[in-house]
């Protein structure tokens, strides 16, 4: 009985999520190590920090003393291990400009970025997916053509120009929303958030909308192409033939399948936005980490830049891990292979 045997061959269905997550974490650690080598190389090998710190009129003895005090007289591998050891202990060094621990500096600015980015992502998904499914299902209807045109335009507008346009329309002409800065914050778990009070929310809207436009366009396109592909699959016709409700056909059979690519892209996009929303944060003078990065590059505040790069990598790794886990939850073919 070939059929019965097959069932047993696939009996190892308990190759569990835990295993999968552990395997992925292992890979992530390797990736982080590689990144730390690159950042270390960038920081200590390509340029000479002693020369920068000591200035032009320092004597040779001054330089040696300086090098010794920063451990720069040690062989390279030892220096790398020291650098790594400090990072593992959470010590990313001290900012040249602010004279404070870099980590505290970044975490202080992080909530401002997070609230704008998450709001934008939520709006992007909540608006983009329904629009995309609608236009995928009704290819010939007029609204689809409008949506299609709108996404093309929205995707092509340069981010900074769109931001200026928003300020012009909503802050200057209509005077309904503030043009820049972050409004009052509400303390939740010791962190200040401005999305949780009405006045603060008014300040979040424009920067979040500026990020959301491109996201909506992208999600619409992903959902539309997914819908067009999935609707022609045999299982969609078979599901219709079963006589199930249309809401179930769309909400379950279609959505589950189109979410798979959307999750992957959203994960990547989330990381990029958190780490590199520098344009939006600059135009709206939004005190997030993107603006911190830009300021630090201007002022050659290298400890901040280095810590930023490593944390960004760590964040990308974690977001990817979460995306992969969601992916595996959505697609049993990944989960059980």
């Amino acid at each position: 009985m070939a059929e019965a045997d097959h069932g047993h061959r696939c009996g190892r269905t308990d190759e569990t999520m835990t295993n999968f997550i552990l395997r992925r974490l292992g890979q992530s650690i390797i990736l982080l190590l590689i990144m730390s080598v690159l950042v270390f190389a960038g920081m200590y090998v390509i340029s000479d920090p002693v020369a920068v710190m000591a200035g032009e009129d320092a004597t040779e003895a001054d330089r040696q003393a300086l090098a010794r005090s920063f451990g720069l007289d040690q062989p390279l591998p030892i220096q790398y291990l020291t650098f790594l050891g400090k990072i593992v202990q959470g010590d990313f060094g001290t900012s040249f400009v602010y004279g404070r621990p870099v980590l505290a500096l970044i975490f202080e600015r992080l909530p401002a970025t997070l609230e704008v980015v998450f709001l934008a992502i939520l709006v992007g998904l909540a608006v983009g997916i329904p629009l995309g499914i609608y236009s995928g299902l009704n290819r010939k209807k007029a609204p689809t053509k409008v949506i299609s045109f709108g996404t093309t335009v929205g995707y092509s507008i340069p981010n900074f120009w769109q931001a200026l346009l928003f300020i012009l329309v909503f802050a200057v002409w209509l005077r309904v929303l503030p043009a820049s800065g972050r409004g009052p914050t509400t303390e939740i778990f010791g962190v200040g958030w401005s999305v949780f009070n009405a006045e603060g929310l008014r300040y979040v809207i424009l920067p979040a909308a500026n990020l959301a436009v491109a996201l909506i366009c992208m999600q619409t396109r992903l959902a539309r192409s997914g819908t067009q592909e999935v609707m022609y699959q045999d299982y969609m016709m078979f599901a219709r033939a079963k006589g199930i409700a249309r809401s179930r056909l769309i909400g379950r059979h279609l959505l589950r399948n189109i979410l798979i690519p959307i999750v992957t892209i959203t994960g990547l996009e989330l990381g990029t936005l958190i780490a590199f929303s520098t344009v939006t944060e600059t135009v709206f003078s939004w005190p997030g980490i993107g603006k911190l990065l830009l300021d630090s590059i201007y002022r050659s505040d290298r400890p901040v830049v280095v810590a930023y790069m490593i944390l960004a990598t760590l964040m990308f790794v974690l977001i990817n891990l979460v995306a992969d886990i969601i992916y595996a939850i959505l697609d049993p073919r990944i989960r059980y292979s």
Binding site: Y235, M237, A241, H253, R256, D331, R333
Partner: peptide, 25 residues
């Protein structure tokens, strides 16, 4: 049609591997 599909007329599709949705149990 939706009212008779499944209830009065059943459908068996050519390729069983593609007739079932791969991501639903």
């Amino acid at each position: 049609f939706a009212a008779i599909r499944g209830k009065r007329i059943g459908y068996i599709y050519q390729n069983p591997m593609t007739a079932l949705n791969p991501v639903l149990s």
